[in-house]
Structures are given as structure tokens and as C-alpha cells.
Amino acid sequence: MTRGKVAVIGSGNIGTDLMIKVLRLSERLEMAAMVGIDAASDGLARARRMGVATTADGVAGLIAMPDFAEIDVVFDATSAAAHVANARALEPFGKRLIDLTPAAIGPYVVPAVRLDDHLDAPNVNMVTCGGQATIPIVAAVAAVTPVHYGEIVASISSRSAGPGTRANIDEFTETTRAAIEQVGGAARGKAIIVLNPADPPLIMRDTVLCLVDRLEDDARAAVAGSVTRMVADVAAYVPGYRLKQAVQFTDIDAAASIRTLNPDLHPAPRTQVSVYLEVEGAGHYLPAYAGNLDIMTSAALRVAERMVDHAEAVAAVST
């Protein structure tokens, strides 16, 4: 079994953590190149020390590298605006792109939810850290009962929010909202991000609120079971992902005004499902409180490995 060669664009925190995960954890991927634009960045320096080929000339430098043709998958850990240009530059070469920015050029992918739906897509989007943490929960609830409205609040340490995150707050909320609907299955979605300035820094916390039809005891047990199983599925590739407490259910009277959440809803008894999560980082490169970044790199690694497996299987059938 050969390893698929990968490159990482972006030598900042996310790209460097991803590189280290590929080197330490993956039996299916081979780290072929680290790409940046700052020759003095820590990410490029670490890559060189770890024997990884580097370039500080951005995507143009990657394309010019002697082994570029052998690279199967390219991770983009830059910014939404930069990814648009990077994708355009790489399109003629037929590389598979995994986008860790909120650019959302390609379809949204959350590994725990229908991972195999887009394995042939040339460019897939990893949504956002908040999306990776919460969309599986919305999908778990939607697997049992229709979700009329899904709202997520992602609270991350201010220290773990680098310039890329801060420059893409609007894209974060819009991309996450869209993925709550398209991947999570909610009829309508909303996303909120909170940069928590607490010192010492707190690890990532996520709240998921789902508005559903009135649930009786059997349905509540089914929803709680579905959420618990989904948490285990995500924790298989993000070990620090966990429930903070049991799933909560709150009944809402038919007279309550909920049309601001979903104007298509008619008055009826409803139930709010509340799920509280915590995401602790693995500490490969980033501190444990940066679970928001760890879940992105862990999810991207899982997608790349599945892409390589899929491509190998297709090639085997073709021959």
C-alpha cells in the first residue's frame, strides 16, 4: 500500500499542526511539501528540520517544485481570499484540494456526516472549526426528527484566533450557517462565534440548540442515543471531543413566538434540544486550549486519508 503525497499551503498555526499530524499519525499520507510566503516562519523552519521540502514562494513555488506532479492532495490553510487565488492557480493541474478556510468554493465536508458523498470532488471545504464541532450534532438530531431551526455558538480562546480567523469572522458565520442546513439537515440555521479573552485561556466550548416537534419520552431517548453515538464517531478522530453534560430537552408551548427563528413554522408544541460540547486539542503543535484548530486539522486529515483510499480503490477497479 503506497502513501498518497500531500502538500500544505500555509505555514501558520493550522498548517503547521496539520503537517505534524500527517508526519506523526498518518499511515496513508506522506508529507511532500510545506508552502508559505514568509521564509522566517516557524512552520517552514520546522518543516525543514523535519525533512520536508519547503518553499516560501507561495503556490507558484509549489508548482515549480520538482516533485509537484507526484502530489495527490493539497491542503489550503491560508485564508478565504487566498484560497480563491490558490484554487485558480492549481486548477489546471488536477490536484485534489482540501480547503480549511471559509471560502466554500467546493462542497462542505464533515467527516462524521456522509464523508463519502464528495470523494470525487476536486475541491472540498472543511466548513469551520465551529461547524466541524457542531454540525455532527445537528445531523444526529435530524436523523431522529426534523430540525426546524439549528443554532450553534462556538466559544474559542482569543489566543487561538490568529489573524486568518479574525479576518474571516463574517465568512465563518455565513459558511457555518449554510453548512448547518446543507450538511446538518436543519431547515434554517444560525452560527455565532465568541472570542473569549479569559486568561488562562479556556478550551473550546460549543452549544448546539435544535428546535424540533414536541418529543415524548421514547423520542427523547432516541435523540440522546443518536447524539451520544455521534460524539463517539467524532471522538474517533478528535480524541478531545466530548459532551459536557447529558442532552437537555425543554418543551415550548404552541403559543410561544418562534417565527423569528423559522418564519415557515406554524404554531404547535415544540421541544428545544440543547447539547453542550467541549473540544480539547491534542497538543501536537498547538496548546490544548486550541481545540478549535485541532478539530479542523484532525477532520482534514481524516478526509485526505479517505480520499487516498478511494482513489486507490478506483484505480484498482480500473486496472
Score class of each variant (00 low, 15 high):
E174V: 04
V138G: 04
L195G: 14
D218M: 15
C210R: 05
G130Q: 02
E216S: 02
A140W: 02
V212N: 11
T128V: 09
H148M: 03
V124K: 08
V208G: 13
S155P: 14
S155H: 13
A178C: 08
G130C: 08
C210L: 00
D120I: 12
A178H: 08
E171W: 09
L209Y: 06
T165P: 00
K190W: 02
A140S: 05
E216R: 04
S157F: 14
I192K: 12
C210A: 15
D199E: 10
V194T: 13
I193N: 08
A167R: 11
L202K: 13
R205T: 08
P163I: 03
R159C: 00
Q182F: 07
S160L: 07
Q132L: 15
E216M: 08
E216K: 01
Y149A: 05
L202Y: 12
P136A: 02
S158A: 15
D199G: 03
P122M: 12
G131P: 10
D170V: 09
P163M: 07
A133W: 07
V212F: 05
T207G: 10
R205P: 07
P201M: 12
I180W: 11
D120M: 14
A161L: 04
T134F: 01
V183H: 08
P146Q: 11
S160G: 14
N123I: 09
G162M: 03
A191K: 08
N125D: 13
S158W: 15
I156A: 09
V144F: 13
A140Y: 02
